[in-house]
Design a protein around this nucleic acid. Structure first.
Lengths: 336, 336
DNA sequence: CTGAAAGCGCTTACAG
DNA sequence: CTGAAAGCGCTTACAG
């Protein structure tokens, strides 16, 4: 079933059929429109989008790009929720979705030319790789959580600074005076460095001293936490009553470690996470954390991209999703 | 940059360029091959796959189909891990990946015709909808976790029966005599009904009586668990020492519920899950469970699909991933 | 071994 | 309002 078949069945030319399919109604009489639509419906005609894309140099495909990692990117619940949000909007707006993990930013360009992809959502780009995207400049794209001074694209981030400020501030208000921040490797600038800034400013806003070597522990390597790393954490925690941890997943790992060493949480030490992932309310004690609506983030990314594509919108705003404190059971009040 | 441009640059026709791109080397002289490849490399030529798909009626696109749910499908860590496995193989084999959530199985057919999609991986199809796929019969497709008598497609499942048998058997060997099985809604046949059979047979293999109304609790609705549901669970658990739960996520929810009612795990009641999701080792106590390699499942699905496509393989095997017991801390030994 | 030509299914100026 | 025709970038019999 092709446009030509429809045209023959109705007794009209492919031009006319194409016009009704594409809603160019002002070019066709109502009588013809009706006849064509009837035959299309009855025949179960499905357009060949490859042909359409070839003729239009535009596919209504959106590409989601993420880094090729050994563990597998979607493993991380954060990313799968982003994808959930993206997929909802993309589907609702009648676009198709391609996903691809890459090693090398040339591959984005290649994918674009392969299929005449209309736009991209790019997850977890490392900032310093941005210059490689020069030739990509005129392609509609939105980034997620990419901080880089010269970013010429829309970025969808979160209020990371404000969120971690709230977290640290809560600890301080609960009477904690010696607090720390633990994170995986900290890139600058990045989501994590923003959070660290919020932490620092919360401390200083109370007139307390902040010192990187005192208040911050950056851990290398990934889960499960290695032996040497364990000792660093135990050492770091010793003289503190409360810890902000840059992500729930890591917070949960660390809670597990501390528990195994005989710490009671929150009696012996208070913990606060970031992200409010699903499992944060299922661990024991339930984790106090900073919430962000990750699915909304994916949706906003897709909505902005589609706006760029359809309205040829040239603005490059830096959008930030709000973050808010979720109080559960992993922080205790200190009275003195 | 098109094939025609390359042809002009080399001084040859598009036919020849196409032949070298497609590896039809026996049709071209070595000298010409070299010249064409050199120009392709230098020019940064990228093929237009829409044109190729249009000419070939085949796209090297693989579609991953999943149901449109309100919560969002990829939320579930199980599904995002499957997707991780699929993406790895699809990328490695130089295919492209489209994903789409659907309400209605007609949409699969539509997607196929839209893009000349070469094959599909279909997740969480409800068995009784299979007959709707009649017209889809000749399209390469593999299903994941779909049990249906008349399945004419490859299905990639797990040893659900054997896994739950091992789980229940472990409880029995640890001295538990009154044990139960808790699950969300049980379809027949399905992953869950297979697990229930394994549970039942383990009990009966010890010469113990099995009675559905005694040993099985099917809960309706989803997380978080509702009030009425809570009471059912508490009631069910009262006269038992060990519980098999059909999925880790549910097990973790239930552990949380029991803890809040004063139960100590495993001292007061033993719990065993299924799936070995990431968080099962992060909860307290660490969850004893049945492991399956979910990423491998995704990989096997993709490998089988691509074999079907490329070798025109007509076999429809029913593949099952092994399951094994992971002993952690949520089951205690009962000595009498 | 190489090329001319038709065809895949659509869109889009252009003419009438 | 309708249609004839060229074009999008590829592939593939077929002829030489």
């Amino acid at each position: 079933m092709t446009i030509k078949d429809i045209a023959n069945a109705v007794g009209v030319t492919p031009t006319t059929v194409s016009n009704v399919i594409n809603g160019n109604y002002h070019k066709v009489s109502q009588k013809t429109i009706d006849k064509v639509q009837k035959v299309i419906k009855e025949s179960g005609y499905v357009p060949n989008k490859n042909a359409r894309a070839l003729a239009n140099n535009s596919s209504k495909i959106i590409g989601v790009i993420f880094p090729k990692t050994t563990e597998g990117f979607m493993q991380d619940p954060f990313h799968s929720q982003i994808l959930t949000g993206i997929e909802k909007i993309v589907g609702a707006k009648k676009y198709d979705l391609m996903i691809k993990s890459i090693d090398n930013y040339e591959e984005i360009y290649e994918l674009m030319r392969n299929w005449s992809v209309d736009g991209f959502i790019i997850l977890s780009l490392i900032g310093y790789q941005l210059p490689q995207l020069e030739k990509f400049k005129n392609v509609p794209a939105v980034f997620i959580d990419t901080y880089y001074e010269e970013l010429k694209y829309i970025n969808i981030g979160s209020e990371d600074y404000q969120g971690e400020f709230k977290a640290a501030n809560y600890l301080l208000e609960m009477g904690h005076e010696s607090i720390g921040f633990i994170s995986y490797h900290i890139d600058y600038p990045s989501v994590i460095s923003m959070r660290l800034n919020g932490f620092k400013d919360a401390i200083e806003s109370k007139g307390l001293p902040f010192d990187c070597s005192e208040n911050v522990l950056e851990i290398v390597g990934f889960d499960p936490i290695g032996k040497d790393c364990e000792n660093k954490i135990l050492d770091f925690v010793k003289d503190k009553t409360g810890i902000c941890i840059s992500a729930d997943i890591l917070a949960i790992e660390i809670m597990e470690l501390l528990r195994s060493k005989g710490y009671r949480i929150p009696e012996d030490i208070s913990i606060i996470g970031f992200d409010n992932v699903y499992l944060s309310r299922l661990v024991n004690p339930k984790l106090t954390t900073i919430n962000q609506d990750i699915i909304a983030k994916g949706k906003i990314a897709a909505e902005n991209l589609i706006n760029m594509i359809e309205k040829n919108n040239k603005e490059k705003p830096n959008i930030k999703i709000p973050t808010n404190l979720i109080i559960r059971d992993s922080v205790k009040k200190i009275n003195d």
